[in-house]
C-alpha cells in the first residue's frame, strides 16, 4: 500500500519536472526566435543604410562625370546629354561596368513644363527647343530580375549653351537590386 503511494507520488513529481522543463524549453525557443527576428531586422536595416550611403556617393559621382558636367560651373550641360546617350549605346560594356544596373534620368522642373516629353535628337533640332521637351534618360541597364528598386534624386542646375541659360532640374537614380 505504502509502496504504491510512493510510486504515484513519484509519477506526479516526474510529470511536474517534465512540465517545467517543457515550459523552460518553450520560453528559450521563443527568446531565440525573437532575438533572431530582431537581429535579422537590424542587419537588413544596416544593409539598407549602407546601400543608401553608397547610392548617395554615386549620385555625387554622376553629377561629376566629365561626359555630363559643365566645364567651369557646378551644373550639367544639356548639350552633352544626347551625345552621352549615343556614347553609352556604342560603349555599353564600359559604361555597364562603370555605372552598373540602374537608370539615370534628368527632368527639368523650373521653368515649369506643361508636358514631360523625353528629349530626342529630332526635338533637339526643332526651334522650340528647349521648351519642347523636359526629360532625358541618360542611362538604363536593367538586371534580368529586379528584386527591389532604390530611388535617389538630387537637384541640379541645367545649362543650355545654345541660349546661355541655366534652369533647374532633378537628377534621379533608380538603382536596381
Amino acid at each position: 500500500m505504502t509502496a504504491q503511494r510512493f510510486t504515484k507520488q513519484g509519477q506526479v513529481q516526474l510529470s511536474e519536472t517534465f512540465l517545467v522543463l517543457f515550459i523552460i524549453i518553450i520560453l528559450l525557443f521563443l527568446g531565440l526566435f525573437l532575438y533572431s527576428k530582431f537581429f535579422f531586422q537590424s542587419i537588413e536595416g544596416r544593409a539598407n543604410t549602407l546601400s543608401e550611403q553608397d547610392s548617395t556617393v554615386f549620385l555625387s559621382k554622376v553629377t561629376g562625370l566629365a561626359e555630363l558636367r559643365c566645364s567651369d560651373k557646378p551644373c550639367l550641360d544639356t548639350a552633352k546629354f544626347l551625345p552621352f546617350q549615343a556614347l553609352v549605346q556604342q560603349q555599353r560594356i564600359i559604361y555597364t561596368s562603370l555605372l552598373g544596373t540602374q537608370k539615370i534620368s534628368v527632368e527639368e522642373l523650373y521653368p515649369q513644363h506643361t508636358s514631360s516629353t523625353s528629349c530626342t535628337p529630332s526635338l533637339y533640332l526643332q526651334p522650340a527647343y528647349p521648351g519642347s521637351c523636359s526629360k532625358w534618360i541618360l542611362y538604363e541597364q536593367k538586371p534580368s530580375t529586379v528584386r527591389s528598386t532604390q530611388v535617389l534624386s538630387t537637384v541640379v542646375s541645367l545649362y543650355y549653351p545654345e541660349q546661355d541659360l541655366y534652369t533647374l532640374g532633378r537628377l534621379t537614380l533608380e538603382v536596381y537590386r
Binding site: Y110, T154, V155, S157, L165, Y166, T167
Partner: peptide, 11 residues
Amino acid sequence: TRLLQALVLTT
C-alpha cells in the same frame, strides 16, 4: 546645399 548652389546659377 545643392539646391542653393543650383539656384544661384538659375536664369
